[in-house]
Design a protein around this nucleic acid. Structure first.
Lengths: 201, 201
DNA sequence: CCTGTAAGTCAACACCGGATGAGTTACTCT
DNA sequence: AGAGTAACTCATCCGGTGTTGACTTACAGG
C-alpha cells in the first residue's frame, strides 16, 4: 500500500505534482471513509508525502475537504440540457445520466464522500444541502413548469441519494448486481412520476 | 445540557435505572452522530453517569452499540400484515407505515443511527445489510408473487433510505416541511411501481 | 450478621489524529 | 550571484478517546 520511496529533506527537483496527488488521495479516502474516518496521515501516505505537507498546502483538514470536494459537475449546463427535450422522458434521461455519473466517478466519488461525511459532520450536511438547494433545486424549480417544483426536485434527489447509499455504502446485493438497463427501467417511471405526476396542492 | 447532580462513590440506594438511561442516551447519540461520532463520555454525561459505568455494563463501545440498536421492529409480523390485503395498494400501505414509524421513533431513531454509522463504519454497514437482507428482503421475496422480488424489495428500501437521509441527515427543506398526506401521495405510486411494475427479466 | 456480588466513582494509561514550528532544499527573479 | 519564496520533512505538542484497575458503597442470600 504505502510506497517505500526514499524521502529526503527539502524540495524535490522538477515539478512533483504533490498537490494534485494529495487532492486525489483525499478524494478517495473521503469517499471511502467520510470526513472523520479519513485521516491526514492516511491521505499523506497514499499521496507518498509527509503529513505536514498537507497542512502546508491546505492549512486545515476542513479546507482540504472543501478543496477536494469541488464537484466536477456543472448544474448550470446540465439542467437545461436535460430539460431541453421537454418533460416527456425526463425521468429516463435523469436516470441514465445519474447512473453514468456514478459509474464514471468510481472510487473517488465526491457525492458518496459528501453523504458519508454528512452522516457525522453537520457542516458537511450543510454543504451538501446548500449546494443542492442553490445549484440544483432552485435552478430546476425555475424551469420545471409544474406544481410544487421544489418538492418534486427534492423527491428525485431523495431517490438518487437512496440509491447511492443502498448500493455503495450499504451494499445491497440486488442493487450492486443489477445492470444499468434494468435500473433505468425501474427508476425512470418513478422519477417521471415525481416530476410530473399528480400531487396534492 | 449536562446536569450538575452531585456524584458520590459507591452504589446508590434504590434501583436507579442507570442501565436503561445509558441505553437511551446511547440511542440518541448514535442516532445523532453515528458510531464514531458518538463518544462514551458523551453518552455517560447524557445519562448522568460515570463513563466507566458504561464499560461496567456493556464492556466495549461496540457491544453498547449492538445493545442500543436492537430494533423495535418485528418484520416477521409486519410483512405478512402489510401483504395480507394483496398487492393492490401495497405501495400506499408501505409508505404510510414507513412515515408513521419515522415519526414515532423521533430523535432516538435506530435506523438513522445505523445509516449514519454505516457511513464510516463497515461493520455497521454489514449489520445493516445482513439484517435487511435476512429479515426483510428474503422474507418479502418469499411472499411477493412477482418477477425479481429481491430487486423490487431493494428498490423500495433504497427509496425509503433515501428519504430518511435526505430528510433527517441532509435536511432538504421541501421534504422536512412536507406533510404526511403529501408524502404518501408522492411515494405510494413509486413504491407500487417498484413492487408490481414492469421490469426487464 | 456476614459474605459475595453488583452498582458506582476516580484516576490514570495508551493511543491516535490534527496541528505547529523549525529546519532543509530547490526553484525564480533581479 | 544573491535573495526571497515555495516545496518539503522531522520532531513534537496537545487534546480527546476507549479502556482498565483500584476502590467504595449498597443490596441479597445464607
Amino acid at each position: 500500500m504505502t510506497s517505500t520511496t526514499i524521502r529526503r529533506m527539502g524540495r524535490r527537483p522538477g515539478s512533483s505534482g504533490s498537490r494534485d496527488a494529495v487532492l486525489d488521495a483525499a478524494r478517495v479516502r473521503f469517499a471511502e471513509q467520510g470526513y472523520d474516518g479519513a485521516t491526514i496521515r492516511g491521505i499523506a501516505a497514499n499521496a507518498g508525502v509527509d503529513p505536514a505537507l498537507v497542512h502546508h498546502f491546505f492549512g486545515t483538514k476542513e479546507r482540504l475537504f472543501v478543496a477536494a470536494m469541488h464537484l466536477p459537475l456543472e448544474p448550470a449546463k446540465l439542467i437545461p440540457e436535460l430539460l431541453a427535450p421537454g418533460l416527456d422522458g425526463l425521468g429516463e434521461r435523469l436516470a441514465r445520466h445519474f447512473l453514468r455519473l456514478m459509474r464514471e466517478l468510481g472510487e473517488a466519488n465526491p457525492m458518496i464522500a459528501l453523504i458519508r461525511s454528512a452522516a457525522a459532520h453537520p457542516d458537511a450536511a450543510r454543504m451538501l444541502r446548500e449546494f443542492y438547494t442553490r445549484a440544483v433545486l432552485e435552478r430546476l424549480a425555475a424551469e420545471l413548469e409544474t406544481s410544487r417544483p421544489r418538492l418534486r426536485a427534492a423527491l428525485c434527489a431523495a431517490q438518487m441519494i437512496g440509491l447511492g447509499v443502498a448500493t455503495f455504502i450499504i451494499g445491497l446485493r440486488p442493487l450492486v448486481e443489477a445492470d444499468d438497463e434494468t435500473m433505468v427501467a425501474a427508476l425512470a417511471p418513478a422519477l417521471q412520476h415525481y416530476l410530473t405526476g399528480d400531487l396534492p396542492p
